[in-house]
Nucleic acid binder design. Sequence first.
DNA 1: CAACTGATTTACGCATACGTAAGCCCATAA
DNA 2: TTATGGGCTTACGTATGCGTAAATCAGTTG
Lengths: 157, 157
Amino acid sequence: MVKHRIQQTRKNMNDKLYSITELAEEFDITPRAIRFYETKNLLAPQRAGATRVYNYRDRARLMLVLRGKRLGFSLEDIKEYIDLYDADRSRSEQLAHLMLVGRRRIEELEQQLEDVQTTLKELRTIENEAIDSLREKGIDPEKAVADIKAKLVAETA
Amino acid sequence: MVKHRIQQTRKNMNDKLYSITELAEEFDITPRAIRFYETKNLLAPQRAGATRVYNYRDRARLMLVLRGKRLGFSLEDIKEYIDLYDADRSRSEQLAHLMLVGRRRIEELEQQLEDVQTTLKELRTIENEAIDSLREKGIDPEKAVADIKAKLVAETA
DNA sequence: CAACTGATTTACGCATACGTAAGCCCATAA
DNA sequence: TTATGGGCTTACGTATGCGTAAATCAGTTG
């Protein structure tokens, strides 16, 4: 029974449809951006008349796009990446192409992984040094940070 | 003696100066890009007359810029990051600010680390599936990839 | 039925990150 | 001395990734 309920739930999830603004609000982007991705062939939602209607697959693709953006890839690169998912797996030439393009991406990402780890180390070192310096001055680092933050917020207003 | 020689070597390394094209060629970018970074205050080489002369510190900064770019950061963000290195460590307010900005960057990079790892997993899965599919078809995956690669190179020419 | 909400297209605008001349200066090799 | 190889500045051009009207249209509400 429980299993059945879960199946139902998941089915409902997968059947769920989204408007462009729903997706925009969920991912904190503008409808304009979503439409722009469509012009770049990153999305292809159904239409109800002229109105775009997104299903869970469209939503998943959008999430891939946004992750790609966080990684600093261009929309063109992201398209190539998404195409890897949708690539025709029947022809062996396509499979080989998939491997080729995928491996290039993997190399890039391995470099990026290294860069991120290096930078994280550096930033944590800087942070720890700052904490030590503040303690030596008899200042509570956390309080100092909170104060600065409050001050910056105040300046914004 | 050996130590002395090492010192000498390092001293020579540190004293080494570079022209703009030398740096450009070393990092596979254009002199124009390097000059552009300077207009954005990411670099500030000495001048011999009008000619830019870069020392090892300038070179290190350039490397930081390029790593930031690989991470997908804007030049403005990169400047903020570099400024963390050069920040005034004497005033406690500066130290607190350093912590604040550094922590924001750390959060971003932790998200990015997660994204990179997730994407790498997905790509490796895709690659392995492609390899399996090709093997099932009695095709040597490595040869297939090499063939596709050669074909694409041929098309370019 | 008018007004309001939310969606669509078309189109111009804008910041980022350089590319690409164009024109000029300077040094060194032939 | 001429020319050839950098380097410099100024300035306009360009691709990417949307933002921002402006005008329109369909559906809902008072």
